[in-house]
């Protein structure tokens, strides 16, 4: 019951901070930055589910983030080009014709479905191939990271069809709303913040459900779960697919808020950056990953404004400190103190 109350208070505080305080206190520029961090936080909730609860150290969430982002970006480019129009960069670098696999994303409905379905299906196929063969631990981590690297290289090579290194950018509107209008930018922030709250609610329901207990059981004793008559691969696949869908949605929101998606935002380095906030915030807690992701990203921006070359050392030191002294993350400080008090 106490845990129940804690979660409800957490949701109330989160909603108040994101939907009331932040828009009232922050300038448009800062609010848009926070919107970007909120996208990272959505990815982080998924990583918390897959890694914190499911024990799958996924170093390749950039792939799913990228899939969601590119689907949205393609739609925005097509919408800007008008009905049966051709996006600007294709006229410059490509054949001047829209490739067949772009066409479905002219439809807003297909786009919204694709943002969730494409990362989910890729994760489903991948999860089925990997977890059924009982690949786990460091091997899974390396595999997922290699995938992120391969995905980024693949994108870089496709200059004519998806913009190569430049990526897709210069969007003018979002489902009919002009993106240069500050009111619409605020609206985008509200959409991202509400999505984060919904994603957290989904994670909460998963954690307190029987599935959540089962997922933890698989994390701790995978073989034992098999001997209870479950196929652990199925349980891991579900968590992995949900995490991928969350990353896809985050990518799709990232595109209109930041205005660009390029291979640099989906490769190995961003995939690992997603993880740092989760580790620091507390990977197996409900709010830890999201709060950690926002705080780390915020600290990065403000600290690199004041000390441009200093941030990377600070980030490394923080990561080391947390891993060495608080392996379950900063949000476990409270329970740690409670335990020491009980022990003395």
């Amino acid at each position: 019951m106490r845990r129940e109350l804690g979660a409800l208070i957490g949701f109330a505080v989160g909603a108040l901070a994101l939907l009331v305080l932040a828009p009232a206190l922050l300038s448009d520029f800062r609010l848009s930055l926070l919107g970007k961090f909120v996208c990272y936080a959505i990815v982080a909730v998924g990583i918390g589910l897959a890694w914190g609860r499911g024990g799958m150290l996924t170093l390749g969430q950039g792939v799913f983030f990228g899939l969601g982002a590119y689907v949205m970006a393609m739609h925005l480019k097509l919408a800007d080009a008008g009905p049966s129009g051709v996006p600007d960069f294709m006229k410059l670098y490509g054949s001047g014709e829209v490739p067949g696999w772009w066409e479905p994303f002219r439809s807003p409905v297909v786009t919204v479905i694709g943002v969730i379905a494409i990362p989910s299906l890729v994760a489903l196929g991948l999860g089925a191939a990997v977890f059924r063969r009982r690949v786990r631990g460091a091997y899974f981590a390396i595999l997922s990271q290699a995938l992120a690297a391969a995905f980024a290289i693949l994108l870089v090579g496709q200059h004519a069809t998806i913009g190569g290194t430049n990526g897709l950018n210069g969007f003018r509107s979002f489902f009919g709303f002009a993106l240069y209008d500050p009111v619409n930018k605020r609206m985008l922030f509200y959409i991202a913040a509400s999505t984060l709250l919904v994603v957290l609610a989904i994670a909460w329901q998963l954690y307190r459900s029987r599935f959540g207990e089962l997922l933890m059981a698989v994390r701790d004793q995978e073989e034992r779960v098999r001997f209870l008559g479950y196929d652990p691969a199925n349980i891991k696949i579900v968590a992995y697919v949900v995490a991928a869908a969350m990353a896809g949605v985050a990518g799709a929101l990232f595109v209109p808020i930041v205005g660009i998606i390029s291979p640099a935002s989906v490769g190995v380095v961003p995939s690992i950056a997603f993880l740092i906030g989760v580790a620091i915030g507390g990977r197996s807690t409900l709010f830890g990953p999201a709060v950690g992701a926002i705080v780390v990203a915020w600290a990065q921006t403000t600290l690199s404004e004041s000390f441009p070359s200093f941030w990377i050392y600070f980030q490394g030191a923080l990561f080391l400190l947390v891993v060495a002294f608080l392996p379950s993350g900063l949000s476990t400080v409270a329970s740690l103190r409670r335990r020491t008090r009980e022990a003395t």
Partner: peptide, 18 residues
């Protein structure tokens, strides 16, 4: 014990709380 009892549970039961 609850996990051990549940190998035959359907997805809907799994997604709810005990």
């Amino acid at each position: 014990l609850d996990i051990a009892a549940g190998a035959g549970r359907g997805p809907l039961t799994l997604l709810r709380r005990r």
